[in-house]
């Protein structure tokens, strides 16, 4: 088992798990707002993404996969969780950033069709892969064309979701009246741009050998971390009532 595949997943899990837990478990303003309030999709997205990463840990992956009808179905379930998380996030951000185009694109009819196509494609490519042993992210079979297509389908779906949101997120990074809000949206836009870049540069990645492959995967981890930290900053801004403290009376000069 290559530590380059396990360590980043573990770190991501710590980051995602802790921030999601913090989001839904903060006294007074946490649970009610996170799971029932206007930001519930973000919390759900965090939960699904955390579950996706939990399943990728070998001590979880191997026992779960042992009860699955087809070897490496756990990887498929992990990817489905990730797709659902991205769909929730895309739909919610399109509302927050007030982009009807992004809304239609991510969770409207085109978004549903895309999700269906990618989900079916992931199932098809898993069945077409000759993978007799459990392998998180199918890394042991990365050379097989079906696995390459499988990986690219996930990257393509993420790119599809984030593409219409980069512009609105970037605009908010420039116009949000709160400093922390500008930073948060900047991180989200940066994370989305990295996701998009990885999907477009996937052909280059196919030529990589050995541990270099993991470098490309780290791009996705960094992009996810940017987005997650960006959203956590918005949560911090809400909890610490930054709107009230930073945007006081327009009359005061003190």
């Amino acid at each position: 088992m290559n530590p380059l595949s396990v360590v980043p997943v573990s770190l991501m899990l710590i980051l995602l798990g802790s921030l999601t837990f913090k989001r839904i478990n903060t006294p007074v303003t946490g649970y009610e707002h996170a799971l029932r309030g206007k930001a519930s999709s973000i919390a759900l997205s965090g939960i699904f993404l955390t579950l996706a990463y939990v399943l990728l840990l070998p001590p979880v992956y191997i026992p779960v996969d042992s009860v699955m009808p087809v070897t490496n179905t756990t990887d498929l379930i992990s990817k489905y969780f990730a797709l659902i998380a991205v769909a929730f996030l895309g739909g919610h951000l399109s509302v927050a950033y007030a982009s009807p185009f992004a809304r239609r694109w991510t969770v409207g009819a085109p978004g549903a069709v895309m999700l269906g196509v990618v989900a079916t494609g992931l199932l098809g490519t898993l069945l077409a892969t000759n993978a007799p042993r459990p392998s998180p992210q199918l890394l042991d079979y990365a050379a097989q064309p079906s696995v390459r297509l499988n990986t690219w389908l996930v990257l393509a779906y993420v790119a599809y979701i984030v593409f219409p949101l980069i512009g609105p997120a970037y605009r908010d990074a420039r116009k949000n009246p709160l400093r922390v809000g500008r930073l948060a949206s900047g991180l989200i836009a940066g994370g989305f741009a990295l996701s998009l870049a990885r999907a477009f540069t996937y052909p280059i990645e196919l030529g990589a050998t050995g541990d270099v492959t993991y470098l490309f995967m780290i791009v996705s981890y960094i992009s996810t971390a940017f987005v997650v930290i960006g959203l956590a900053l918005f949560a911090y801004a809400r909890r610490s009532r930054k709107t009230e403290t930073e945007l006081g009376s327009a009359l005061s000069i003190d």
């Binding site: 707002h33 309030g37 206007k38 930001a39 973000i42 919610h92 951000l93 509302v95 927050a96 908010d172 949000n176 009246p177 709160l178 809000g181 948060a184 959203l231 918005f234 949560a235 911090y236 801004a237 809400r238 909890r239 930054k242 709107t243 930073e246 945007l247």
Partner: peptide, 10 residues
Amino acid sequence: YARKMTELLG
């Protein structure tokens, strides 16, 4: 605007 964004994303 800031309140809307922090309510929706926070």
